[in-house]
Design a protein around this nucleic acid. Structure first.
Length: 622
RNA sequence: GGGGACGUAGUUCAGUUGGUUAGAACGCUGCCCUGUCACGGCAGAGGUCGCGGGUUCGAGUCCCGUCGUCCCCGCCA
C-alpha cells in the first residue's frame, strides 16, 4: 500500500545538508539509491539530482518508519521526515559531500514503488547502450548524465546571456519550411492542404538568418534545432542543436571576437578558463601541418622531412620526389612491435597513392644519415612513435596534380591527409600511452566548479581554420562544387578568377575546430545579387535553376542587402567535449541509434491508412 | 551502399578441440543481523546461448542467411 504525500513539503535537497545543519527538522524527498538492512537498523541512501543523503531507520526510534524501510526497494520514491544528526567521528563518510550528517527518520512514506530496474542508476558503468536508450528515464537518473545536462544547461545559458549582452536578438525561424536541396537530404513533412507538396525541416536556418540581416535586425542568434537525413556517427545525430548567429557589417575578426567571447563565457560557466583569442591557421597550413582541416593541437603536428633524404634515397625507397615527405610523431608511445605495426596497417588509407615507413630501425640500417636527419627535423624524443608518410612512386593514381600557384594540389593533399588521418587514428589508439587526451576527462567536476576556475589551456585547444578554397573539383562529374555553401563570399581580390581559375579562389569561410572536432563553420556572405548569381553560374547552375531553387532569396538580395556574415557552432559537440564524452548520445536527452531509431518511443513507425490518405501519400514499400 | 566488432541469466562477462545437467560476479527473492555506506551471513530462484536454416551421432562452439547495437568509409554544401 502506497502512502500519500499529503501536505509534506521538501525542506532540503539530498545534496545540501552539512554538519552546520545538525539538529534541524527536515523533510527529504527522493529515490532510494541503496538500502542497507541491519535488522533493527536500516540505512537508506536517498538520491535526487543534487546528491545523496543517508537516512537512518532505527526500530527503537520509530517502529512504523522502520517497517516502511524494510519494504522499500531501490528506485522507490520516498519521503523521509526527521532530524539532521551529526555522525560519530568513526562513521563519517569522507567520500560524500553529505557524509558528516544523516537523517534520523521519525516517519517514512513510500510515495511510489518501482519495478526492479534493468540496471541501477547507482552502478558506475553501464555497458549496454541498447538497454540504456530503451530505459532512458533510468539512465538519465545516473549522476553522470545529470551532470552532463547541467553542463549543457549552463553552457546554453551563458551563451544566451553573453550574446544578449552584445546586442544579439534571439529570433526563432520556422521548422516547417521550403526544401532547398543543397548538401544533406531533407526530412520532409507532407502537406494535407496541398496534395503532393511538402515542407522540409531546416538543415540550418541559413537563408532565414541572412534575410534577418536584410531586414535590419543587425545581430541575430538562435539556439536552433537542425535536421539532416544522413547516416549517423558518434558525433552526428539526425537532429542536433546549433548556436547560430549572424551579424551585419562584420569583418571576419568581428565574428571571431564574438565567438571567442561566448566560448570563454560558456567555459567559465562550468569552471574552466579558456584563453582568448584563439590561434588561427589557414586551410593550406592546416593541411601541411596536420593533414586535416580540423587540427587536434593536443599532439605535435606533421614535420616536413623531405630534406632528410637525397634523391637516391627517395628512389631507393620508391618515394615520389615531387610529393611531400612528412613525419608524424606521437610522444611517449615508443617503438612499435612487429605485431602492433601489422595491426595498424588497416588504419592507413592507401587508396590515394600514399605510403608509410613505420620501421625506423630498418630505415636506420639502410639509410642511417637520413634516419638521423628525420629524427632531428621531427624533433623526436627517444620514446616517441615516429612514422614517415610519403607519396608512393610505384602507384599511378588518377588525381590532378595541376598546381595552382600558392595552393596545394590534389595529390599533395592526398599525402598530407593520409598522414593526418593516420596520426589521428594512432593517437586515439594509443591514448593511454601518450596521455594527451586524458586531461579533458573529468575536468568538469564538482570539485572544479566549487573550488574556482580550472586552467583549460592544455585540455581544450580551439583553433580557427581560415581561407578555405571556394571550390572543390569533383572528379566524377568534372564539375566545380562549392567546398562549403554557395552563399559564401569569395575573397574580394580573388573575384576576377571565378571563371578563369576557380581552384585559386579563396573563400571568406572559417571553421572553429577544437581537439580534432569541427565545432562550427561560418563565413562572410555574398551580399550583392550579381555576385551570388555569378557563383551559381560558376557552379554550373543555370539562371532558371537558380531562380527555381533560390528565387525568393535572390529577390530579397536586391532590396538593400548589407554586408553580413555569421557562424553556427554545434552545441551538442561543445558539451560533448566539456563532458569528456565520446558520443553525442551522452549529451542529448533522447538521442537516436546509428540507424536513426528512437529505442524508447520506438520511432519511426508505420502510420494508419487513414493518415496516409489524408496526406495523399501512397508508400511503395511496407 | 561498403567494411569491421559484438550479441550467452535482469546486468557485466567466462565458456577449452564440437561431447554429461551452460558457469561466475553483481542484481533479485526469503531468513538472520544496531553503524553500514559497493554492509555482512545463510538459503534460493533465474537461460528459446538474438532469430532461422544447415553440417554432425552430438552445436553456445563450425557453415549460410537474417535481425539488432556500436565504430569507421561513402555521405554530411
Amino acid at each position: 500500500m502506497l502512502d500519500l504525500l499529503g501536505t509534506l513539503t521538501r525542506t532540503h535537497t539530498c545534496g545540501e545538508l552539512r554538519a552546520a545543519d545538525a539538529g534541524k527538522s527536515v523533510v527529504l524527498l527522493g529515490w532510494v539509491n541503496r538500502r542497507r538492512d541491519h535488522g533493527n537498523l536500516i540505512f537508506l541512501d536517498l538520491r535526487d539530482r543534487y546528491g545523496i543523503t543517508q537516512i537512518v531507520l532505527d526500530k527503537e526510534v520509530g517502529e512504523a518508519a522502520h517497517a516502511k524501510a524494510e519494504h522499500s526497494r531501490p528506485e522507490y520514491v520516498v519521503a523521509a521526515v526527521g532530524k539532521v544528526r551529526l555522525r560519530d567521528k568513526d562513521v563519517i563518510n569522507p567520500k560524500m559531500p553529505t557524509g558528516e550528517v544523516e537523517i534520523v527518520a521519525s516517519e517514512l512514506r513510500i510515495l511510489n514503488d518501482a519495478k526492479v530496474p534493468p540496471f541501477s542508476p547507482s552502478e558506475e558503468a553501464i555497458g549496454n547502450e541498447e538497454v540504456r536508450l530503451k530505459y532512458r528515464y533510468i539512465d538519465l537518473r545516473r549522476p553522470e548524465m545529470q551532470r552532463n545536462f547541467e553542463v549543457r544547461h549552463k553552457v546554453a545559458l551563458a551563451v544566451r546571456e553573453y550574446l544578449s549582452g552584445e546586442g544579439f536578438f534571439e529570433i526563432e525561424t520556422p521548422f516547417m519550411t521550403r526544401s532547398t536541396p543543397e548538401g544533406a537530404r531533407d526530412y520532409l513533412v507532407p502537406s494535407r492542404v496541398h496534395p503532393g507538396e511538402f515542407y522540409a525541416l531546416p538543415q540550418s536556418p541559413q537563408l532565414f538568418k541572412q534575410i534577418l540581416m536584410i531586414s535590419g535586425m543587425d545581430r541575430y542568434f538562435q539556439i536552433a534545432r537542425c535536421f539532416r537525413d544522413e547516416d549517423l556517427r558518434a558525433d552526428r545525430q539526425p537532429e542536433f542543436t546549433q548556436i547560430d548567429l549572424e551579424m551585419t557589417f562584420p569583418q571576419q575578426e568581428t565574428i571571431f571576437g564574438v565567438v571567442e567571447g561566448f566560448m570563454a563565457a560558456a567555459f567559465k560557466a562550468v569552471g574552466i578558463d579558456l584563453p582568448v583569442p584563439f590561434p588561427k591557421i589557414s586551410y593550406d597550413e592546416a593541411m601541411r601541418n596536420y593533414g586535416i582541416d580540423k587540427p587536434d593541437l593536443r599532439l605535435p603536428g606533421l614535420a616536413d622531412v623531405k630534406a632528410a633524404f637525397t634523391a637516391e634515397n627517395l628512389a631507393a625507397l620508391v618515394i615520389d620526389p615531387n610529393l611531400p615527405v612528412v613525419a608524424l610523431r606521437i610522444p611517449k608511445v615508443g617503438e612499435l612491435s612487429r605485431k602492433e605495426r601489422d595491426d595498424n596497417k588497416p588504419l592507413f588509407d592507401q587508396r590515394k597513392g600514399a605510403k608509410y615507413i613505420d620501421d625506423l630501425k630498418r630505415l636506420e640500417k639502410g639509410f642511417p644519415e637520413a634516419a638521423a636527419k628525420v629524427r632531428e627535423l621531427a624533433g623526436a624524443e627517444a620514446d616517441d612513435l615516429l612514422i614517415i608518410v610519403a607519396g608512393d612512386a610505384a602507384t599511378h593514381i588518377q588525381a590532378s596534380d595541376t598546381k595552382t600557384p600558392g595552393r596545394l594540389s590534389e595529390r599533395e593533399i592526398a599525402v598530407y591527409s593520409a598522414a593526418g588521418n593516420f596520426r589521428v587514428e594512432l593517437a586515439r589508439k594509443y591514448a593511454e600511452r601518450h596521455g594527451a587526451f586524458a586531461v579533458t576527462d573529468g575536468v568538469v567536476t564538482d570539485e572544479g566548479r566549487n573550488t574556482g576556475i580550472v586552467d583549460g589551456s592544455k585540455a581544450f585547444r580551439p583553433i580557427w581554420v581560415t581561407d578555405f578554397p571556394m571550390f572543390e573539383h569533383d572528379p566524377e562529374t568534372g564539375k566545380w562544387m562549392p567546398a562549403h555553401h554557395p552563399f559564401t563570399s569569395p575573397h574580394e581580390e580573388d573575384m576576377d578568377r571565378l571563371v578563369s581559375d576557380p581552384a585559386s579562389v579563396r573563400a571568406r569561410y572559417y571553421d572553429l575546430a577544437m581537439n580534432g572536432l569541427e565545432l562550427g563553420s561560418g563565413s562572410i556572405r555574398i551580399h550583392q545579387q550579381q555576385v551570388q548569381q555569378e557563383i551559381f553560374r560558376a557552379l554550373g547552375m543555370s539562371d532558371e535553376e537558380a531562380k527555381a531553387r533560390f528565387g525568393f532569396f535572390l529577390e530579397a538580395l536586391q532590396y538593400g542587402t548589407p554586408p553580413h556574415g555569421g557562424i553556427a557552432l554545434g552545441l551538442d559537440r561543445l558539451v560533448m567535449i566539456l563532458a569528456g564524452a565520446n558520443s553525442l548520445r551522452e549529451v542529448i536527452a533522447f538521442p537516436k541509434t546509428a540507424k536513426a531509431i528512437d529505442l524508447m518511443v520506438d520511432a519511426p513507425t508505420p502510420v494508419s491508412e487513414q493518415q496516409l490518405r489524408e496526406l495523399h501519400i501512397k508508400p511503395t514499400k511496407g
